[in-house]
């Protein structure tokens, strides 16, 4: 059956079984590959996207949950928080292999949208669901703070 939602500002209608995770609809049906697959169990955060502005793990979110809602992926992240986060990520050369970073950036942008000046604890809470096997964590923490400052 077909499910309608808005993806990065564009209306989409997808034919997929309702239980298909949003991740695979985005990646395999709509061929938008910036959102990554890491665990499929909401354990790593690589698949993080925004559903009506909130960070969610798309690997465990059935596409049916996105029905008539707004989905934003890394490709469509252009809110001012999103831009500040990306800029800070570039300035501090955060990425290594990069595979986790779409998810990291989506989590960080959602954090800043909810909380303009996060404390270390806030950053821990919002970002510890995102694994980085290259362990770029030191720079992620710095970059979140730098992005917050740039928006202040």
């Amino acid at each position: 059956m077909s499910i309608n939602f808005k993806l990065n500002g564009v209306d989409q209608s997808v034919d997929a079984t309702e239980d298909t995770p949003l991740l695979w609809v985005i990646r395999d049906h709509l061929k938008l590959t910036g959102t990554k697959f890491g665990c499929g169990m909401a354990l790593c955060g690589a698949c993080t996207v925004h559903l009506d502005g909130q960070a969610i793990r798309s690997c465990v979110t059935p596409v049916a949950a996105a029905k008539d809602k707004t989905v934003t992926t890394i490709e469509g992240l252009n809110s001012k928080q999103g831009q500040a986060v990306k800029q800070a990520w570039e300035d501090l050369a955060v990425v290594q292999c990069g595979y986790c970073q779409s998810g990291q950036i989506m989590s960080a942008a959602a954090l800043l949208s909810n909380n303009a000046s996060p404390s270390d604890d806030d950053i821990n809470t919002a970002m510890s669901g995102n694994i980085c096997r290259c362990s770029t964590y030191v720079r992620i923490r710095k970059a979140v703070k730098q992005a917050a400052e740039s928006l202040a």
């Binding site: 590959t33 992926t73 890394i74 490709e75 990306k86 955060v94 990069g98």
Partner: peptide, 11 residues
């Protein structure tokens, strides 16, 4: 391309 989703991995 690793901060905007454009970098290409095998996946």
């Amino acid at each position: 391309g690793k901060t905007d989703g454009t970098a290409v991995y095998t996946q």
